[in-house]
C-alpha cells in the first residue's frame, strides 16, 4: 500500500458515497446514467470473486464487499425506489456494444485462461469503458448538476491516482501488470475532456455545461 493507492481508493469511496448521498437527499437520480451504474455493478461482481478464494487483508476484503454492495444499492435505487426520476430518454447507450467486445477481448488477452482470471480481466476492461454511457448521456443533455460533476471527478481521479501507484510499484517493488496499466490509462484518458471542463467551469463556481 502506498499513498497514491490509498488516496485513489478513498477517492473511489468518496465518489460512491457522493452519488448515494445525492440520490438520497434529492430523492432523485436525474442526470445519472443507470446503464453506467449497471456496468459498475457488473464490474465489481466479476472482479471480486477472489473474496471466496483468497484472503489479502481486512482492508482489501472490506473494500471489496463495500464496492459490491453499494453498486447493487445504487442500481436498486435507480431502477426501483427512484425509478420515476430516472432520465431513461437520455440514457440510450447500447450496453451490448461494450459488453460483447470487452468479453471477447477478455477471452483473448488475459494472464491465465481460467474462469476467475478471465472474469477479472473482463472486469478490468469493462471498468475502463463503463463511464461511456454516463458521458454519452451528458453530451445529449449538454449539462450536469454540480454534485454529479463532483461525483465524476472523484471517480475519474481514482484511476489516475492508480497510475501513479503503478509507477511507484514498478520502481520500488518491481510490480507491473500490463492489463491493469493499459486499461487504467484508457479509463483515465476517457475522463480528460471532463476533467478540463470540471477545472475550467465547476471549480470556478459555474455549472457544468457542454459547448454546443
Amino acid at each position: 500500500m502506498n499513498i497514491f493507492r490509498l488516496i485513489g481508493d478513498m477517492s473511489h469511496l468518496l465518489a460512491i458515497v457522493l452519488l448515494l448521498l445525492k440520490m438520497w437527499k434529492t430523492r432523485s437520480c436525474a442526470g445519472i446514467s443507470g446503464k453506467s451504474q449497471i456496468l459498475f455493478a457488473l464490474v465489481f461482481a466479476t472482479r471480486y470473486l477472489d473474496l471466496f478464494t483468497a484472503f489479502i487483508s481486512a482492508y482489501n476484503s472490506t473494500m471489496k464487499l463495500f464496492f459490491i454492495s453499494t453498486s447493487l444499492v445504487t442500481v436498486y435505487l435507480m431502477y426501483f425506489k427512484f425509478r420515476a426520476t430516472y432520465d431513461a430518454n437520455h440514457d440510450t447507450f447500447r450496453l451490448e456494444f461494450l459488453v460483447v467486445p470487452v468479453g471477447g477481448l477478455a477471452f483473448l488477452v488475459n494472464h491465465n485462461f481460467s474462469p476467475l482470471e478471465i472474469l477479472w480481466t473482463f472486469s478490468i476492461y469493462l471498468e475502463s469503458v463503463a463511464i461511456l454511457p454516463q458521458l454519452f448521456m451528458m453530451s445529449k443533455t449538454g449539462e450536469a448538476e454540480t454534485i454529479t460533476s463532483h461525483y465524476l471527478f472523484a471517480l475519474g481521479s481514482y484511476r489516475a491516482l492508480y497510475i501513479l501507484n503503478w509507477v511507484f510499484r514498478y520502481y520500488f517493488e518491481g510490480f507491473f501488470d500490463l492489463i491493469a496499466v493499459v486499461a487504467g490509462c484508457v479509463q483515465t484518458i476517457l475522463y480528460c475532456d471532463f476533467f478540463y471542463l470540471y477545472i475550467t467551469k465547476v471549480l470556478k463556481g459555474k455549472k457544468l455545461s457542454l459547448p454546443a
Binding site: 484472503f55 489479502i56 481460467s114 482470471e117 477479472w120
Partner: peptide
C-alpha cells in the same frame, strides 16, 4: 499472477 493468490489491488 495466479488468481489463487488473489488480487491485492481494488
Amino acid at each position: 499472477r495466479p488468481i489463487a493468490e488473489g488480487h491485492d489491488e481494488l
